[in-house]
Structure formats: C-alpha cells, structure tokens
Design a protein around this nucleic acid. Structure first.
Length: 275
DNA sequence: CGAGAGTCCTGAAGGC
DNA sequence: TGCCTTCAGGACTCTC
C-alpha cells in the first residue's frame, strides 16, 4: 500500500531511467482506474520526451516536453498500484494495465490489482488540477510544522489520527505512518484534534517528519504488496513499533498494543505510552 | 463548513 | 476441497 515514502522511493527509482527519454509507445490494456485513463493518452505521450518526475503528496507528476505545448502525466498508485521498470520482452501479467516504452529500451509498467490508482493528463506546464490544488503542505517541506497543525486544528472535533491523515491538512500521512508518528509523539490517536496543545503538535510534526524520512531512507515499507522499482521489497516493516502489532508488547513499556477502528480503518497504539 | 458514512476493487485469510 | 465472509486501504463523494 503505497504511502508517501513508497511513492518517493518509486520516483527516485524511475528518475535515472526515464529522464531525457523519448516515449516511443504507450499501451493501455485497461482504462478502468479510479477515473478512466483518457482515451487519447497514447497520442498525448508518444513521441514526447520525459524531462522530469516530481511528487506532490502521493501523486507522481511526469513532466512531458513537446514542441506543441507539453503537459504533465499525473499518476497515483492508489493502495495496490506500482510502477516498475522491466525489459521489453517481459510478458505482461494480470493487472499490468499500462506499458510505457522508452527510447532506451526500458519498459515502465503500471500494475494495480485493485485499480484505486489514477493516470491522468494535465495540459500545460503548470501542475494545476482539482486533485492537486486543495492539498495541504508537504510534511518534509518548509511550510509544515507544529504551528501549522495547531492553527489548522482549532475547533476541530475529529480525532487527531484522522486529522493528520487528511490530505487537505498535510499530504502523505497514510494509515501506517499515522499510527507510527502518534506513537513516536506519545499522543493517543482518539484525542480530538482541537484539544491537542501547540507543544504536542510540535512533537507530532517532528515525529511525522522523522517517521517519513526514516521510511524513505529504508526504501519504503512492504507491509502488503509494495515492491520497489527494481522488484525488491521495502524494509520499513522491520521497524514498525505499533502498526500491525496488535497484542504484541510495546517495545518501550511492554504493555500490549491495542487496535481500534477509526473512520473504518485500523489504528494501533500503546495504551500506556500514548495519552 | 465539518463529520461521518459510503464507495470503488481484488486478493488474502479465516471459518465452516 | 471449496464456498462464503471479512478485512485491507486512499481518498473522493455524498448526506446530514
């Protein structure tokens, strides 16, 4: 399940193989993702050059250059999607929905069994799109800190865990890292967001940044079906403190980790360390 | 506007 | 062995 570290790991893995390459051919086998893949995507991409790949939240943005006005290929991996490179001769497997053949004979393949992902086109060089324009700050960028969380949370009754998972507040904090960051900050996930102090939001902001940065350094998590661009699994699961650790002893105090449901999602926390 | 539920989808896992 | 149910999860969309 790709979260921000997995998406960033994917971006870095793709960079060296696609920058400066001409897209020779695009093959779409199934357009039914979260939204349909545009029927003219092949025509928009073929013959054009990839000049960069950036990331906004969990969206990957491919800069596509063209003499007659370029654009941006917007990709989201949903929760079961992956982008990986392989050889042209590799036969496609079930749920391999899109192939992008590059001039250097590298094949970029999009795989997504649950089809919650997206592949859309933004015309022009400016990454403006309804999906992007309302997003909150990047957790590892300059505009994210405890003050931002504190100010955005006043009068909010939603739980702190659901609050930090809201992409309009801050992008890239998914279910796994939300539990991990709250554990690191010692905050109970059920606490109403509006009742968390500025001091504790400072701790939480730092915890979010450290948790994500560590996961990126480790190459992303591999809790379910995530694999890196080269097909190897990530390793964050080895250092998860609470996620998927129900009834296991807390690494800090030994109290049994508890799991609850919040917003139809599983939350894990230590009843002793998090208050 | 905020909060909460519903929704898309497939595959793994567990129960009987 | 095999069917049925439950769970997993990002994030938009709808309702109140």
């Amino acid at each position: 399940m790709p979260e921000l570290p997995e998406v960033e790991t994917t971006r870095r893995g793709l960079l060296t193989k696609v920058i400066g390459q001409t897209i020779l051919r695009v093959t779409v086998r199934d357009r039914r993702l979260r939204w349909p893949i545009p029927t003219n995507l092949e025509k928009l991409l073929e013959g054009r050059v990839v000049t960069g790949i950036s990331r906004r939240g969990k969206y990957l943005l491919w800069d596509i250059e063209a003499s007659s006005g370029g654009g941006i290929l917007l990709c989201h991996l949903g929760m079961s999607g992956s982008l990986f490179t392989t050889r042209l001769s590799t036969p496609h497997a079930k749920h391999d929905h899109v192939d992008i053949t590059l001039g250097n004979k590298v094949l970029v393949r999009y795989h997504d069994s649950r089809r919650f992902g997206a592949m859309l086109w933004i015309a022009g060089a400016i990454p403006s799109h309804p999906l992007l324009d309302t997003l909150g700050p990047e957790p590892l960028g300059d505009h994210f800190d405890g003050a931002h969380l504190f100010n955005a949370s006043r009068e909010r009754t939603v739980s702190i865990k659901e609050f930090i998972m809201n992409a309009h507040i801050v992008v890239g904090v998914g279910n796994i890292y939300a539990s991990e960051a709250l554990f690191a900050a010692g905050i109970r996930p059920t606490t109403p967001a509006g009742r968390v102090s500025h001091r504790r939001y400072d701790l939480l902001a730092t915890a979010i940044q450290r948790t994500l940065a560590r996961a990126i350094d480790a190459g992303g998590s591999s809790l379910r079906d995530y694999v890196k661009v080269n097909g190897e699994p990530g390793h964050f699961q080895l250092s998860a403190n609470v996620y998927d650790c129900a009834t296991k002893p807390c690494r800090v105090c030994g109290t049994l980790i508890k799991t609850i449901r919040q917003g139809q999602r599983s939350t894990y926390f230590c009843p002793h360390c998090q208050r």
